[in-house]
């Protein structure tokens, strides 16, 4: 995924789903993290500008990795990383909670994780 695609999305105001725009998800979790962010923003948990600011930093970091010849995060991996950063910053989750969820998923797999 190129950063050009990212910036085209960044410029859009909410709901950022443009019929003309080709949004493609390669896995269900990508659609999930995308819709969670849109929904939380619509609910007023953060402004779209705050999201754009947070996401831009991830995009820039990925670009830097790519420029250095490394393997950057995919587009939705960047989206997920930014989502975690923003939700922690907003006090909606914590690094410990994220650790606990990862721990459980790593132990039993995502299909067996009970929401709590």
């Amino acid at each position: 995924m190129t950063s050009a695609a990212a910036s085209s999305l960044l410029g859009k105001p909410l709901p950022c789903l443009d019929a003309a725009e080709d949004i493609r998800f390669d896995a269900p979790w990508e659609a999930k993290v995308f819709s969670i962010i849109v929904k939380l923003s619509q609910q007023g948990c953060f402004t779209w500008a705050e999201w754009v600011d947070c996401f831009s930093k991830e995009v820039a970091a990925a670009d830097a990795v790519e420029a250095a010849g490394g393997q950057p995060k995919t587009y939705y991996e960047q989206w997920l990383a930014a989502a975690e950063t923003l939700l922690v910053a907003k006090g909606m989750t914590s690094p410990e909670q994220l650790l606990a969820k990862r721990f459980a998923i790593g132990s039993v797999g995502p299909a067996h994780l009970i929401a709590s």
């Binding site: 914590s94 650790l99 606990a100 969820k101 459980a104 132990s107 067996h112 994780l113 709590s116």
Partner: peptide, 16 residues
């Protein structure tokens, strides 16, 4: 923080 998990057979939940 404490990390807490509990499970029944193969289903598990966890939290801080």
């Amino acid at each position: 923080h404490r990390i807490v998990f509990q499970g029944v057979h193969m289903v598990m939940s966890a939290d801080a």
